[in-house]
Amino acid sequence: MELIDLTLIWIGIIGIGIFMYVLMDGFDLGVGILFPFARNDEHRDMMMNSVAPVWDGNETWLILGGAGLLAAFPLVYAVFLPALYIGVFLLLAGLIFRGIAFEFRFKAKTSRYLWNWSFFIGSLVASFAQGAVVGAYIQGFETEGFTYVGGPLDWLTPFTVMTGLALVCGYTLLGSTWLILKTEGDLQDWAYGVAGKALIAVLAFFVIISIWTPLTEARVMDRWLGNIQWLWIFPVATLGASAWLWRAIRYRKEGVPFIATMTLFITFYVGLLISMWPLAVPPDHTFWDASSAPETQLFLLIGVLFLIPVILGYTAWTYWVFRGKVRPDAGYH
């Protein structure tokens, strides 16, 4: 037995990294999903400007997640990516198209509508693909030893389609509460309306997934029913966060909905981890099976412990620089 369990530390680091990505790229993907539904082009300008300064930094967490998984849990990297082959392509293509839309939309005049569509479809496809990845993780992968042996579209099932749609709604909720925080007037009114509907949709998906998952995955059923004496606290926390969010939307407390949504996401995330623990590549492989050699985990840990705080500091600074409301005149023009 090692003195320090490096694998456990790395579960923490990667877990936080992925969650940072989901929260941060989540709201800017959500803004993209809402794009075609905005009332006018001026609103669209403001929506885009509200996320323009920070979205690249947000996406860097995805690259860190990919490289970090390869370093710390190579089995996850080497099973998920082949199994989700087509989905990964769609994710990358979506991210590329929405990324360039940021850059070109404000430079375009006659072709602006093309970049509006590029931003919307790119965001939608990327969000759906990410939700499907979560569903595929729950549903597990057909492996033999340490390689994926399933088919190219095994990941695409009614269940993963549903988790894909669920994350689209979740990101919409994050995006709309972000807009409540960052805008005012007409656009903010509209965002309040969207956030309420998105919350209802998210809760509906939460109920469906909470019923569907244990029914299809026996281990999830055992986990929750076997430990119900203390696990009941998590669904209750989810409902509590939802109620908090609902009141904040209803009473128009503009700073609160975004924080409440993040809290809601934390409860989902913890619930997912409880369902899956300690499996990294279900149904057969735990995080400890999936981990790289201890010397590898240690070598990277030393650097990451120094560098992640610096990155977090920089990220916080960026958000501080761009604090406050977005105004129609402050943009690319």
């Binding site: 390869l70 370093a71 790289s292 590898t296």
Partner: peptide, 17 residues
């Protein structure tokens, strides 16, 4: 990737950070 991850994983991660 799986076979070489013990070396290439940290190297690519260090490039990111």
């Amino acid at each position: 990737s799986y076979a070489s991850a013990n070396f290439l994983g940290p190297i690519l991660s260090y490039e990111v950070v």
